[in-house]
């Protein structure tokens, strides 16, 4: 459970820091008046949607951290045979990076108010993401074709399960992206558009990060890295 504990430690750190800045040490019964003695710690100015997404991403991160924990615990057992990582995954990674970049461009454009750049960015990232999903499917078929079936070994089971889970999250993101794109052509006001694009970008960058972590995990580098650390410690 080490992975998830580290993850939660980070969350706890952030939460603790935030709480301290919210004056949890103050003596409320001594403060009267609209904002209390600490007016500046009134509700933040950040757009609510972003905070909402932030919290949601914490939950998603938690989910994948748990998968990683389970992966490491199961890996210890004797019947574990790592499976070769299909070359294709490198390509997919590149594609996913592209779509993140495209969305980032869209964000910049949206801030500058260049609507057609925004549209371009959204569409590109949409297609690259679809390409990524297609690539993942291809990787699955390649693996199962060469005999690495879901049930034949826990390493395979984890591979299909975790990549599948990540894929599902991407699909969910695509829905939001589609709506934003529609809005970019349709009725969205510039501000509304900027916000939605920023939200999409936030989600994409996060899922890219998750994917890189998953990649490192499934390729077995994470395990090697931990072993190295162990040796350094002992």
């Amino acid at each position: 459970m080490s992975v998830i504990l580290v993850f939660l430690l980070v969350i706890a750190g952030i939460a603790g820091w935030w709480l301290l800045n919210q004056g949890v040490m103050s003596k409320p019964w001594l403060e009267h008046g609209p904002a209390g003695a600490l007016p500046e710690i009134d509700v933040t100015g950040m757009p609510t949607a972003k905070i909402g997404l932030g919290v949601f991403l914490a939950v998603v991160g938690c989910l994948f951290a748990l998968f990683a924990s389970a992966y490491f615990m199961r890996m210890e057992l004797s019947d574990w045979q790592p499976l070769p990582i299909p070359r294709l995954l490198w390509l997919n990674t590149g594609v996913l990076v592209l779509s993140s970049v495209a969305l980032q461009c869209a964000v910049v454009a949206a801030r500058r108010g260049q609507i057609d750049m925004v549209r371009l960015g959204l569409v590109t990232s949409g297609f690259t993401t679809l390409a990524f999903l297609a690539g993942q499917l291809a990787a699955w078929r390649e693996l199962s074709a060469s005999g690495y079936l879901l049930v034949s070994n826990p390493a395979n089971s984890f591979f299909y399960m975790i990549t599948g889970m990540h894929g599902l999250h991407i699909v969910g993101g695509l829905v939001a992206l589609a709506r934003t794109t529609a809005g970019a052509w349709g009725k969205y006001s510039p501000d509304r558009l900027r916000l939605s694009v920023e939200l999409c970008a936030m989600y994409w960058h996060f899922l890219l990060f998750v994917w890189l972590a998953v990649f490192v995990l499934l390729a077995g580098w994470a395990a090697d890295f931990i072993d190295i650390c162990r040796q350094l410690l002992t």
Partner: peptide
């Protein structure tokens, strides 16, 4: 639950009336 939970948390973070500091 996750859908609801996001609401409860973010409402406390963002929805508080003016003057409603955490410690109030």
């Amino acid at each position: 639950f996750t859908m609801g939970g996001l609401n409860y948390v973010v409402t406390v973070l963002q929805g508080r009336a003016r003057g409603m500091t955490l410690m109030r």
